[in-house]
């Protein structure tokens, strides 16, 4: 099977301090660490598992700035055969729709049986790229995919719904699967594989290779800090004092 995996390099913000930059439209990035978007690493693993079963190739594709090539090299080390980067720095207002439209411009010249994407990216939380890509390529899709099994040319696909309910679908290929986290165990790349991937060529495409005049759906006007809600009463003091206060609160509620 010939497979394509779309990968995004994203800032790791869950534990970091996030600040607005001077443009007011982006965050300060220089102190943040970056990594493959969480759901994308499950998408990549899903593709690798299918390749191991059926043979074929995996193309890893990323719309990103030059450092996205580090993330593509991780994909190469884990099991992708080739990698392509679209120069994000040449495009503006990259919302989910425009991102998908750019990915489509590259994918339309590649033969594929399935495309895997993450169900969403943790930086802009769009949930758009997989399904829009499918629509532009005129193939079927499923989102929040928690299982893909291929047999006799058909895919048995599970989607994860609210409350953990599963929707089981039967789909034909080619199709686009936007993968939810937790669907497999993403492998680690071995050191040897990482060293080997460091020497591989990554094809880079840019504005001159893309004929389409692309419009985005939306313009980000400004970032702002989320309004603080009711805000917790923060217990202060040493660890010991804080713990004593918390234990007292729990006791007063009659819970111990």
């Amino acid at each position: 099977m010939d497979l394509i995996v779309c990968i995004k390099r994203v800032p790791q913000t869950a534990e970091a301090e996030v600040k607005i930059d001077s443009s007011g439209k982006d965050i300060v990035r220089d102190r943040l660490t970056f990594d493959m978007n969480e759901a994308d690493s499950y998408a990549l693993e899903a593709a690798i598992l299918l390749k191991e079963k059926f043979g074929g190739t995996i193309t890893a594709l990323s719309l990103g700035t030059a450092d996205a090539e580090d993330t593509l090299r991780i994909a190469l080390a884990k099991g992708a055969d080739s990698a392509i980067r679209i120069r994000a720095e040449e495009f503006v207002e990259l919302d989910g729709f425009k991102t998908a439209a750019l990915l489509k411009e590259v994918i339309k010249d590649i033969k594929f049986d399935a495309i895997f994407t993450g169900c969403m990216a943790t930086d802009d939380s769009y949930y758009q790229v997989g399904p829009v890509l499918a629509e532009l390529l005129r193939v079927g899709h499923a989102t929040l995919v928690s299982k893909v099994e291929v047999a006799d040319g058909k895919a048995q696909v599970n989607r994860e719904l609210e409350g953990g309910l599963i929707e089981h679908l039967e789909m034909s290929l080619p199709a686009v699967f936007a993968v939810q986290t937790g669907i497999n165990e993403p492998r680690y790349a071995s050191l040897i594989a990482i060293r080997r991937a460091a020497g591989k060529e990554i094809r880079v495409v840019g504005k001159e290779d893309i004929s389409l005049e692309l419009k985005s759906n939306s313009t980000l006007e400004e970032l702002f800090l989320p309004p603080v809600g009711k805000r917790a009463e923060i217990l202060s003091g040493s660890t010991d004092e804080i713990s004593a206060k918390a234990a007292t609160i729990i006791k007063e509620k009659g819970l111990i």
């Binding site: 869950a14 759906n217 702002f224």
Partner: peptide, 27 residues
Amino acid sequence: IRVTRQLYDGKMDAHVQLAESSSYVLT
């Protein structure tokens, strides 16, 4: 249509203006 969205693990909000149109779709 102008919407508010949440970015970066819920640590930022954004005002987003949609392109001019006679029809829009939002989730």
